[in-house]
Design a protein around this nucleic acid. Structure first.
Lengths: 109, 109
DNA sequence: CACTATACTATATTTTTGGTAACTGGCTTA
DNA sequence: TAAGCCAGTTACCAAAAATATAGTATAGTG
């Protein structure tokens, strides 16, 4: 009988968990994703929907989420500038699971 | 026609989201919860399963998770001491959703 | 020419998180 | 008598995250 390190349940995969945490952890990140849900929002609209976020943090979070592939940035060559953010395909795939986190929050309310 | 601030989708609830984030954010927190899954683990077992975690951080995370109501601590009046940790009922209810986060991680792999 | 609008960037500062290493208490074993 | 075991605690420090505030580029408007 071979040694079985995982008795009854398969161990969680730390790498996958870290990938997921990278997307949602931080004071604003998950909220930005959920806000974006089905709609497209501009930088200024997002800053209005995130009460108290600083310009620097918002710009940084948007950049990070685009880099992670969760959302897409579309800039129009207009003046004054216009930039729109929306979820990527992967982001939309993850959305139902991320929305369920609100139910988890409700459990511990 | 009355003004409808939420067009097509109900806005996410920042309070619930923060409750959920409090449980899972941090370098080790979610992993501890998933590890505990169905099994009961002792302090030393946990520290062995979390390679590189410091005593201080582990003790702090366990204390926080117990305070949040995710897990329970049971101490036996023996010598040497024995303390067991396992998920609370609420923790077990949240578990399926938290496990799905690994699928989210897989999407962005 | 001054002024506005938008989407940022830069700089400095504060707060939070994570980490190291040493120490404790009470019993047991060598 | 000393050393080990378990489940932590304590004091201290570094790095990361968040915040506050000011500045930039460009074009159009009056």
């Amino acid at each position: 009988m071979p040694t079985n390190p995982n008795e009854q349940s398969k161990n969680p995969d730390l790498r996958l968990i870290n990938k997921a945490l990278a997307m949602i952890c931080g004071k604003w990140r998950l909220y930005i994703i959920l806000l974006l849900g089905e709609q497209t929002l501009r930088y200024t609209q997002l800053s209005e929907l995130l009460p108290g976020i600083s310009e620097k943090v918002l710009a940084g979070e948007l950049k990070a989420l685009v880099a992670l592939g969760v959302m897409k940035r579309k800039a129009y060559a207009e003046m004054p500038p216009r930039v729109e953010y929306k979820l990527s395909k992967k982001g939309r795939l993850a959305l139902p699971i991320l929305n369920q986190l609100q139910e988890v929050g409700q459990l511990f309310n």
